[in-house]
Amino acid sequence: MNIIVLMKQVPDTAEVRIDPVSNTLVREGVPSIINPFDENAIEEGIRLVEKHGGRCTVLTMGPPQAEEALRRALAMGADEAVHVCGREFAGADTWATSYTLAQAIRQLGEFDLIICGKQTFEGDTAQVGPGVAEQLGIAQATYAIEVQIEGRKMRVKRVLEDRYETLEVRLPALISVVKQINEPRHPRLKNVMAAKKKPITVWGVDDLDARPNLIGLAGSPTSVVRIFAPERHHKGEIIEGETPVVVDKLIEKLRQLEAV
């Protein structure tokens, strides 16, 4: 079973702040991490290979620094890593990213399953998974919380807003996984050491069969034209005093709101 996991290195958004004075993003000292949902994707890929045999290859598109994230995926237990890297790919929106990753996957050859996280922490779009599946013309099952494979058939339990849906999908297919699907492992020391010796395949624009007008900024139908800090409005009323006084005032407010 050949599994390809799509992953991305992202800034840890929990640490990103807006400078109240300049109203700009402060990212100083914000660490780069593997997109958390992608850790679940890697974990699922490794588990499926442990169970069914085969190889788990991690694939990312990103700047040279993304090698760090690939190393971690290898330390978790991925067998191979492929890094699509080059300035030509920069500025890609989800369409161009999907196209580029799909071309890289084609180049990797036969595969049975592609796994990605349900969305990234930075963009939150959840668009690249379905985009890749469409480019490759394979079935998709997003928001997977449980996966079972038997032969060429896969059963996927999906978690939707208010319900679970179980799909039967024929392989090859793509799934995007939610956090609850598994608990990503910590890289064990032997794998940390072994990962340092594993080669990472780097593909630049010349290594891929990708049309220049479909990658990077040129291949992106959408463009960001402005970035700004979210508005903060509101002028609230502060209720102070001893607890009984505060509670009385709150009850009064709740009564006005017809909540009590």
Partner: peptide, 23 residues
């Protein structure tokens, strides 16, 4: 931008080479 919409829209945009902005 529901579970369904986020499954459906990117698939269509990818096929149509259309711009899609999420959420």
């Amino acid at each position: 931008a529901t579970a369904q919409g986020r499954d459906f829209a990117p698939r269509c945009a990818s096929r149509l080479v259309a711009g899609l902005t999420a959420d």
